[in-house]
């Protein structure tokens, strides 16, 4: 009955590239995940254009001070970042919790009983796919946003900090998705993981505004430092901010690995 009979089982051994390929098939075969990813990328570019159009429209009625503040701001193009961060973070959560919610995880782990390759493959895939697409979207947002505002505003990628901020925006989005996936492994529940992620990205910065001493050290604020063209004097340096966020994510991820390896599926 089989096309496999001739192939020895040893030729079928589970390996990391094979698990990665399996995860790639899973990622692109689910409409919920692909739509969330596409929406996140579209939000980044769309918001940059929209913010530019609104500023153009308001230009005539702006005071000199307001005009000056806009013209020195490079953050026009990152207006979509928060929305993008939420959507891509959710996509990161879903890649993991979607499996727990449906029972698919049992099929996945029966195929890969060592389990850890599933986690590394999912994170690698998110890094590759989101790294590439958010970088493209970030540059698209920059160029389109600049083009829309070109009548009033002149900025170049070669201005100090700008290139780092444009690339940094892609880093922020990809890192947020990785945090989402890590929370997914830790909590195994879509609602809990999304609520926690939104708490970290949306609610903690509000706490920071009330308690300014801790503000720079909150994960989302620390991460945001890599996407600021003009460093905020109150924020951490971009490298330090990224490191702090990476350390925070690593702690969550360690919990996720523990949960994956030690708990029943």
């Amino acid at each position: 009955m089989s096309a496999l009979r001739q192939t020895p089982a040893s030729a079928s051994a589970v390996s990391f590239p094979r698990v990665l390929r399996s995860e790639w098939i899973k990622l692109r075969s689910l409409r919920s995940t692909t739509l969330t990813l596409a929406a996140g990328l579209a939000a980044m570019v769309g918001m940059a254009v929209m913010v530019g159009l609104i500023r153009n429209h308001q230009w005539a009625t702006m005071s000199d001070l307001q005009r000056q503040s806009v013209s020195v701001s490079y953050d026009v193009h990152v207006g979509g970042r928060f929305l993008g961060q939420l959507l891509l973070g959710v996509a990161g959560v879903l890649v993991v919790t979607g499996e727990y919610a449906t029972g698919m995880i049992r099929a996945t782990l029966a195929a890969v009983p060592r389990r850890l390759p599933v986690l590394t493959a999912k994170l690698t895939l998110l890094t590759l796919v989101l790294g590439a697409t958010t970088l493209a979207a970030s540059f698209a947002a920059w160029f389109l946003g600049s083009a829309v505002m070109s009548a009033h505003w002149h900025a170049s990628l070669s201005d100090p900090g700008v290139l780092r901020a444009v690339v940094g925006q892609a880093v922020v989005l990809t890192a947020t998705a990785l945090l989402g996936a890590s929370l997914g492994f830790l909590l195994r529940n879509t609602a809990a993981a999304i609520a926690t992620l939104f708490g970290i990205v949306l609610v903690l910065p509000i706490v920071g505004e009330l308690w300014t001493a801790v503000a720079p050290y909150l994960p989302s604020n620390a991460l945001e430092s890599v996407a600021l063209a003009r460093p905020d004097p109150d924020a951490l340096a971009p490298g330090a901010g990224l490191l702090l966020f990476a350390a925070f994510t690593a702690v969550v991820l360690a919990g996720g690995i523990w949960s994956l390896l030690r708990k029943d599926a």
Partner: peptide, 16 residues
């Protein structure tokens, strides 16, 4: 059932 309802039968089997 250890199957994601959003995925087709063929994609489910291909992923495994």
């Amino acid at each position: 059932h250890a199957i994601h309802p959003g995925r087709s039968a063929r994609d489910h089997l291909r992923a495994l």
